[in-house]
């Protein structure tokens, strides 16, 4: 589940959620965007202001639905695990799954649905291969960090993966990666990204 934040300005958006800036940089102005697990609608607000997108969110949680209403964001209350039947094939320019991939149960089906309703998908997720995570596992404990702020017994993150895992997954599931941005805080990580990157953002398309 996306983490709930109270957001005041555009700059604080990007600071709190470094993936927002990457996502916005990839999205062409005036396009149609679907944000799955949109939380309080802050990404859609950000994209509306930065890229003038026509956006919709999908969210299941009542409090987040209310927050979206307050943010004036289109939101459809539904369980994305049950599929995206309300959305026609190829009806969006981008479908975004921002920091939600690691928390969904039906990963394959959701990626398939993303690439049905849109030609391009964008996902961001915490990199489980980050060295501090590895270190904690080496020390014999499940990692707990800013990017993964839960204990093993209460985490919503049931499908953690590394950059390598996600790229292999795309290769096996008809998704072609177009762009990748790996972040540590607001800084981009180019060197040893699977070891030094905290957060990964990918743009991918349906393989023809």
């Amino acid at each position: 589940m996306p983490i709930d934040h109270k957001i005041d300005t555009m700059t604080s958006f990007a600071r709190i959620r470094p993936d927002f800036a990457a996502i916005a940089s990839w999205i062409r102005p005036g396009t149609k965007v679907l944000d799955l697990g949109c939380g309080d609608g802050s990404l859609l607000c950000f994209l509306r202001n930065m890229r003038q997108v026509h956006g919709y969110g999908v969210e299941i949680d009542d409090e987040n639905i209310l927050a979206c209403f307050n943010n004036g964001v289109n939101v459809i209350q539904s369980d994305l695990e049950a599929g995206l039947q309300s959305f026609e094939s190829d009806s969006f320019d981008y479908v975004v799954l921002s920091q939600t991939l690691q928390a969904v149960r039906h990963t394959k089906e959701i990626i398939r649905e993303m690439l049905r309703v849109s030609r391009e998908g964008i996902v961001s997720f915490p990199n489980f291969g980050y060295w501090k995570n590895r270190l904690q596992i080496m020390a014999g404990r499940m990692p707990v960090s800013e990017a993964l702020p839960y204990q093993w017994y209460d985490t919503p993150n049931i499908h953690n993966c590394t950059l390598g895992d996600f790229e292999a997954f795309c290769g096996q599931h008809s998704a072609r990666i177009l762009e990748r941005r790996v972040m540590s805080g607001e800084r981009q990580v180019a060197f040893l990204p699977n070891l030094l990157g905290v957060l990964a953002v990918y743009r991918f398309e349906r393989r023809r």
């Binding site: 026509h54 919709y56 964001v73 289109n74 939101v75 459809i76 539904s78 959305f87 026609e88 009806s91």
Partner: peptide, 9 residues
């Protein structure tokens, strides 16, 4: 949605 209208549900 099919008509690209703004809608919340």
């Amino acid at each position: 949605l099919d008509n690209k209208l703004d809608v919340s549900y």
